[in-house]
Structure formats: C-alpha cells, structure tokens
Design a binder for these strands. Structure first.
Length: 217
DNA sequence: GGCCAGGACACCA
DNA sequence: TGGTGTCATGGC
C-alpha cells in the first residue's frame, strides 16, 4: 500500500468519516469556502447563521445586498470588507454567466471550471479546489496549510513545494475518486486541529508510528 | 494578552 | 519568484 493510502487508513480508522462539507447546498459550500479563508470555522458558522437568518444565502440575494449590509452580516468571519467584496464578485460572475446557477460553472470541464474560479479576485487555489470538490463533487484535491505542515513532518514533503506540486502529489498518488479526496482532506484538517498545529501535540497521535516529529522534541 | 485559525492579494526587490 | 505586509474577528 502506498504511503498516502497508509496514512489515509490510519486517519480514517482513528477519526472515522468526517461528513464534509457541513452545508445545506452547493452554494452554501462556496460561500463558506470564501468566508473560511484564514479564519476559524466557528467564526464562519456565525456569519452563515446571519446570512440564513436574513434570508440572503443565495446568489441573487447576495448580489442585491447593499455592501455595508453584507459586511455587517459576515463580520464575525473576519476580514469582512474583503470577503464581502469577494462574495459579490463571485455572485456577480454567477449572475452574468450562469443566471445565478452555480451548477453551470461546476459542470464545465474540471480544468476550465478551475481556471474560471481562479480568475475571480479573492478565489485562490484552496478556495477554488474546495468549491470544485465539496460543492461540485469534482476530483480536485484540496491543499491547505495543514496539508503542507503534516506531510512535511511525515517526510513526504520537503517544505519547498508549491500548491500545485503538493496537489499533484495527491492526485497522482491516489485513485481519482471524489469520496476519497473529500474524506482525505477532511481527515487532514481533523487531525491537524488536534495534533498538528504550529505547536504540535504528539501524545495520542494516531500517526506516531510513522511520524518522526515527536522524536525531535 | 498573545497566538492561531480550513488564504489571497498587492507590493517590492 | 520569493518575501513581507495587510486584511479582522473570536476562542483559548
């Protein structure tokens, strides 16, 4: 079994299915992907609750919202001015090209849809891949800071790889299966939240047997 | 009271 | 192309 699959199985055995992405619709996934940029998910949840309570968690509604009102609603997620602009750039794009139907974008070829998302100001590689995988169920592996940190500590990355190189490691080393990509990224996040933050906690870590990090404390 | 969180972008050398 | 500053709230 490959190192990647071995790690996956250890994580899955320890944490179980993560049931990602926590959202009621693909559009909510996309909104969450933008709001969670460099932000704790609990803060994003507060913003999502606000949007739902105001009945504006839809592309047409966000388009139509006055900017200051949108900022107010998403304020708990932090960087609220940037994120309000990014959300409206995103929904304006859906309005202009897909009559507000996110599926129209998500059903294009993977590389085309990805390039289209990346062309939007405020949508970088992680946000684009999160939308493609978790909203579109497309096989685009999501890389985040946790991924680089964990697999660097495990010795599978040197630390000099860029986003696309890390993504390619997973996409060439794993079978092209959406449920696997979905679960793997979610497991990496679950694991890193508990054991692999900037200051690691190794006691009880399910990867101790294959992780040399705790030997270097 | 500092650190950190499910990034992205502008600017600069 | 790589490094640095900026954006901001909330939990621990």
């Amino acid at each position: 079994m490959s190192d990647l699959m071995q790690i996956y199985h250890k994580l899955f055995t320890h944490y179980g299915p993560r049931d990602w992405w926590p959202a009621e619709s693909p559009f909510e996934v996309a909104v969450g992907a933008i709001l969670t940029q460099n932000t704790n998910w609990s803060n994003v949840e507060k913003a999502i609750v606000n949007l739902k309570a105001a009945a504006v968690l839809s592309s047409p509604a966000i388009c139509a919202l006055e900017r200051g009102r949108l900022e107010e609603l998403i304020r708990p997620s932090g960087f609220f001015r940037q994120k309000a602009e990014r959300l409206q750039l995103f929904t304006n794009h859906l309005r202009d090209h897909y009559a507000h139907d996110l599926q129209g974008l998500l059903q294009r070829s993977l590389n085309t849809a990805r390039a289209e998302l990346l062309a939007l100001k405020g949508v970088g590689p992680e946000t684009a891949d999160s939308i493609l995988l978790y909203a579109g169920e497309r096989p685009s592996f999501v890389v985040d800071a946790y991924t680089g940190r964990l697999f660097g500590r495990l010795g599978l990355l040197s630390g000099s790889e860029n986003y696309m190189q890390i993504r390619a490691l997973f996409m060439t080393g794993l079978p092209t299966e959406v449920p696997l990509y979905n679960e793997y990224h979610a497991l990496i996040v679950a694991h890193c939240k508990e054991f692999c933050r900037k200051k690691p906690r190794c006691t009880g870590c399910p990867l101790t047997a294959i992780c040399p990090y705790n030997l270097h404390q």
